[in-house]
Simulated scan of single mutants.
Amino acid sequence: MNSSMSIDHYGLTNDSRVVIKHEGIYIVHASIHFMSVSSKDYPLYSVYKTDSLGGNQQLVSKCMITPGVRQAPDDTNVYPCQTWQIIHLKQGEQVFMSIGRYTWFQVEKETFHLALIKLNDYSL
């Protein structure tokens, strides 16, 4: 959130939750490229939304890496994990990512993000 346009449309809490300033339909895109995943690791991340007070947590999307037979790294030995979801968000709701289920892994900081793209001004 480094542009004035982002600040006009989104807020950021002290614990890195994105606060929605304008109700509408949004694309929520999350991406993490995991590196150095061992056969014991099954890292995953989830994207959640909450009400304006940070309660009533609801799952928006989830992505999990299963190394080995089911999933192989790309040519650079990275396990990409991306999610896309179209969702209605109300003013004041909060969106955040949570990472879990791993023993140790590295993440490429250039491919670690949560993006919200507002599609319209529609409200229910």
Rank of each mutant, 00 (worst) to 15 (best):
S38E: 04
V78N: 05
E110Q: 13
H33V: 04
D75V: 06
S98F: 11
R101K: 04
N2E: 14
Q71K: 05
H113G: 12
F105W: 10
L114K: 02
C81N: 00
H33G: 08
Y26E: 01
I86L: 11
N120H: 13
H33W: 11
N77M: 03
Y48R: 02
Q82R: 13
L59G: 01
I86Y: 04
G68E: 01
N120K: 12
G24M: 04
T111D: 12
D51L: 04
L89F: 02
Q91P: 02
M97S: 10
P67D: 03
W104H: 10
R70Y: 03
V37A: 00
T111C: 09
G92A: 01
V69K: 11
D8L: 15
W104R: 10
T76R: 15
P43Y: 03
L44C: 08
L119K: 05
I20C: 08
M64E: 14
N14F: 08
V28G: 02
C63G: 13
T111R: 11
N2M: 10
L12M: 15
P67C: 07
M97F: 06
A72D: 05
K49L: 03
V28H: 04
G54Y: 07
A30S: 15
E23C: 05
H33N: 14
F105R: 07
T50S: 15
K21F: 10
T83M: 09
I117D: 00
D121Q: 14
R101N: 09
F34H: 05
I86C: 10
S52Y: 12
D51F: 07
V19A: 05
L59R: 03
P43Q: 06
K40C: 01
I27Y: 13
F112E: 09
A30T: 13
Y102H: 07
I7L: 15
S46I: 02
S61C: 11
I87L: 12
F112R: 02
I65F: 00
Y122S: 15
Q91C: 14
S123W: 09
E108L: 08
M1F: 11
R101V: 01
S3R: 12
K109S: 12
V19L: 08
K40M: 01
V47D: 01
Q106F: 11
D74F: 07
H88G: 14
Q82I: 11
S39C: 09
M97Q: 13
I99D: 00
K90H: 04
Q85C: 12
M97P: 02
E93Y: 11
I32C: 06
L12A: 09
L116V: 04
K62P: 00
N77F: 04
Q85Y: 09
G100C: 10
T111A: 10
S98H: 13
A72G: 10
H88M: 15
K109H: 11
L53D: 14
V107D: 04
I65N: 01
S98T: 12
K21I: 08
H33E: 06
H9W: 14
Y45N: 06
E23H: 03
K118V: 09
M5W: 12
I86G: 03
Y45W: 10
L53P: 01
G24R: 02
L116Y: 04
L116D: 02
N120I: 12
Y122D: 15
S46H: 05
V69R: 11
F112W: 07
C81D: 00
E23I: 00
Y45P: 06
Y10V: 03
K118D: 09
G92M: 00
E23G: 07
L116C: 04
I20W: 07
L59K: 09
I65R: 00
L44Y: 10
D41F: 05
